[in-house]
Each structure stands twice: as C-alpha cells, then as structure tokens.
Simulated assay, not measured.
Amino acid sequence: MMQIICSPTKYIQGHGEIRKLGDYCLQLGATRAYAIIDPYIFSVYKKEITYSFEMNEMPLVMCEFKGECSRNQVNEIVAALGLKDTEVIIGIGGGKTLDTAKAVSHMSNLPVVIVPTVASTDAPCSALSVLYTDEGDFDCYLPLKRNPDLVIVDVDIIAKAPARLLVAGMGDALSTFYEAKACRESGAITHAGGTSTIAALSLARACLDTLLAEGETALKDVKQGITSPAVEHIIEANIYLSGIGFESGGLAAAHAIHNGLTLHEECRNTLHGEKVAFATIVQLVLEKAPYEEIDQVIGFCKKIGLPVTLNDLGITSKDIDPLMMVAEASCSEDSPIWNMPFEVQAVDVLEAILAADARGQ
C-alpha cells in the first residue's frame, strides 16, 4: 500500500492578513469571488474583508452563513452561485462555515481560500468536510477533490476570539498524535488515501509537544489580550499541525467516540474539541495506556479547562442507555474506530467511557 501525505497548497499565518484577501485571490488568477462568512465576523470585520477587493476593483459577493453545515445548506448555496460570475470561493469563520465553503468549492469545481477566524478545530487545512443533519447530528465525512488552495490565518482576529474556542481547538488537536499512532500501528488507510507517513506522524507528535509545552501559557496570554509567540505556536498547532496530522496520520477511536457523543442530548452545547478531548482519554483507556500517560493528558485538560468527566460534558444523568447509544454509534459501519490496532466492541467503548469518567474524577 502506498503512503500519502497531503496539505493545502499554501498556508499563510500572520498579522492583518484579512486585509489582503483580494491580493491572494488575484495570485490564484481569480478576478471574481464569492465569500461565505460567519454572521458575527461579517458584522465586525466587513470593512477589513472588503478592503483589498475594493483596492483591486475586484467584485466580491458576500453570503452570511446560517444554519448547519448540511447537505441542504451546501446544495442551496451551490444553486445560488452564479458560476459564470464566480472564480473562487472564500470561507471566513469557524469550522462549520469553512467546511461549508470547502463543500461548495467541491460541488462547483472552483478553487477555495479558507480564512479561519478561530483556532477551535483542525478543519481549515483538510480535503474533508464534516456534514451534519439540519438538526445538528453528525451525518458523514465528505471527501473532497483537493485540499484548500490557500489557508490564510490572521493571528490578530483569532487572538480576539473567546478563549474557550482556543481551548476547544487544543482539545481537538490533543487527539491527533494518539489517533495517528493507532493508525500507524494498524496500517489503516487515512483520509489522504494511503497509509501514514513518517512526516505525518512527526507533525502529529510536534502538535502534541507544542500543546503540552505552550498551551497553558497561550491561554493565559489570550485572556490578557497578549498575542505572544506561545499564542502563535498554539494557533499553528491547532490549525496546521493537527490538520495535516489528522488527515494524513488518520483518525481512530477519539473521533469515533466524539461522533457518538453528538447524539447525546445532554452534551449538545459542548464544543467539538471539548468532546474530542474527553474521547481522547477514552481512547487511551481502551488502549490500556500507561497510567502516567493517561494522567498527563488528564492533567493538561484540567489546567486549560477541557472536560475530563461526563459531568464536565454536561452529562449528569446516571442512565446508562444513552451512553450505550453513544458507544454503539461509535462502532457504526464506517466509523474510524475500526482504525484501532485491535478489535473494539460497543461494550468495550461503554466500559472505557465509564472508566475514563472515574479516572477524571
């Protein structure tokens, strides 16, 4: 089996980058753009977004993202596109806005520029969109034709986002190495289309090392309004290192269990990365990882405010049936849990969830 690693054509991280979007589109050879923008970002940064388009006299159609990153949403936007009047799709906002822009790009066969305004997930760099139902339940992974043509990261905007979002991004990134390691051991096929590479596993390891070394400092700095090197490093870890690490390194139990947790009514208000963080602990329990390793992850989560118990996720009911539903959904036919280097049954997942909860307590 061949080994494959993939990444966006270009990743740019710096200060004030949102004022250069028109310039970057021109570098792609595009002269007319269609932007899908998070409503809050649209209201606060509209002037900065349009600045370089106006300077270059470049037409820009702006669409506010509303609802879910669902099949219906994507199809509606594609239908509304004037394909002869659009040469590049731009996604500006959080994970679901970006995944929608990538899916629209895929369906319309146009290049895409991705502009994350939070570092809450590793979605920006991947050739993958996570689709949900209109009600917010996990639907499926949509493989895309290619990775984004450009990923533009404006550190100034991300540093001003709520600290909880940066923490959630660290939760999502926390799973990257452990899942990539499991896939490496099992020889699993990754989203890139082949087995893992040395480079992918190395980036995943660098992601974990950066989180453990600088995550707590970055959180303190963001809360104080300081854009420090630690903040910049965590942004890169959350978006780029985790993005390449998960796509070319592979997903395993942590994201499978996350997908199951999306069905649990009591953690509807828990962010993606928060669920992934707890699910990472569950994966380590499944693997029978050394206590020291599990405790290191739990200790890190506690320091920065990530969930380590069911109660932290918002699950206060003692009813086992909803947790069994989570475990069964984690082991569905196309679940990444089958990338684990050993066989996993739903009852194993349930026991690991309960054991992880007890360990966290």
Rank of each mutant, 00 (worst) to 15 (best):
I114T: 10
V115E: 02
P116N: 04
P116V: 07
T117I: 00
T117V: 01
T117H: 02
V118H: 02
V118T: 14
A119N: 06
T121P: 05
D122I: 03
D122K: 05
A123E: 02
A123V: 05
P124R: 08
P124E: 07
C125H: 04
S126C: 13
A127V: 09
L128F: 12
S129R: 01
L131D: 04
Y132C: 13
T133K: 11
E135S: 14
E135I: 13
E135T: 14
E135V: 12
E135G: 13
G136T: 11
D137V: 11
C140A: 15
L142Q: 11
L144D: 02
L144I: 13
L144H: 10
L144K: 06
K145Y: 15
K145W: 14
K145R: 15
N147Q: 07
N147D: 03
N147E: 06
N147T: 04
P148Q: 05
P148C: 01
P148Y: 02
D149Y: 09
D149K: 07
D149R: 04
L150R: 05
V153D: 00
D154N: 08
D154H: 05
D154I: 05
V155E: 13
D156S: 15
I157D: 00
I157S: 06
I158C: 08
A159R: 06
K160W: 08
R164Q: 13
L165E: 12
L166V: 08
L166N: 11
V167W: 01
V167Q: 03
A168R: 03
A168L: 00
A168I: 03
G169W: 04
G169M: 05
G169I: 04
M170W: 00
M170P: 02
G171S: 07
G171E: 00
G171P: 03
L174V: 05
